[in-house]
Design a protein around this nucleic acid. Structure first.
Lengths: 105, 105
DNA sequence: TATATTCATCGTATATTTACGATGAACGAT
DNA sequence: ATCGTTCATCGTAAATATACGATGAATATA
């Protein structure tokens, strides 16, 4: 974009938008579901369940990690990813607050 | 992107990702709040409350309209935008379902 | 120490997003 | 009929996102 105006908005809106951006690709939504379902949280197991290359999946994981929706723990040569329930709950509350605030229904 | 793989994911995830994408910019989150607060829903009134040009705001409105989060009604030379409560509720339910499904908390 | 496994990152190509000013279409008012 | 208002769209520029293969770093094992 020409020049970002993002910083001119309020912090709550910026943060919620960041979470929304992290959820704005079906691969990343599916990754959250996979992490919840799977016992093994290795990247390889996730790659096997997605129609994407390992490097692409790694980028999607990075995006989820960027907003702390997931965290990665090193286990030898592997990395165990898991959902960060604190941030997930914060995200849920943020969306609910927005929707309830904005919905006259 | 090289080639989109989006169609290889399931429909529910794709649709939720589309909603998330529409909410992935603070201007669009603020627009929803503005539409809720304001009596007048003219584009000009929205532009006045955002640090963006009229054409940029129009693009953000288009993105929200694309996923039916808002609808526009022509009133003479003006257009009255308002929130679509049906889609908003669907979005809220979609996010809640995801978060509850994925959160072991 | 050499090898295999696991994963992030680099480099790259293309698509999309974000932003603006300029223009044009539609309508009401003069 | 002309003019002002309102808004979408076009054209454009720059940033970001999405995808891949190749490479490299880190660890465990032989």
């Amino acid at each position: 974009m020409a020049v970002s105006k993002t910083e001119e908005f309020n912090k709550v809106d910026i943060e919620l938008a960041e979470i929304a951006k992290a959820l704005s690709h079906p691969a990343r939504i599916k990754i959250l579901k996979i992490l919840n379902d799977l016992d093994s949280c290795m990247v390889g197991s996730i790659v096997d369940l997605l129609p994407l290359s390992q490097s692409t999946v790694s980028q999607h994981l990075k995006e989820l990690k960027r907003v702390d929706l997931i965290k990665g723990e090193i286990e030898g040569p592997k990395i165990c990813y898991c959902i960060n329930p604190i941030v997930l709950e914060k995200a849920m509350n943020g969306f609910n607050k927005l929707f309830l605030q904005v919905c006259k229904c």
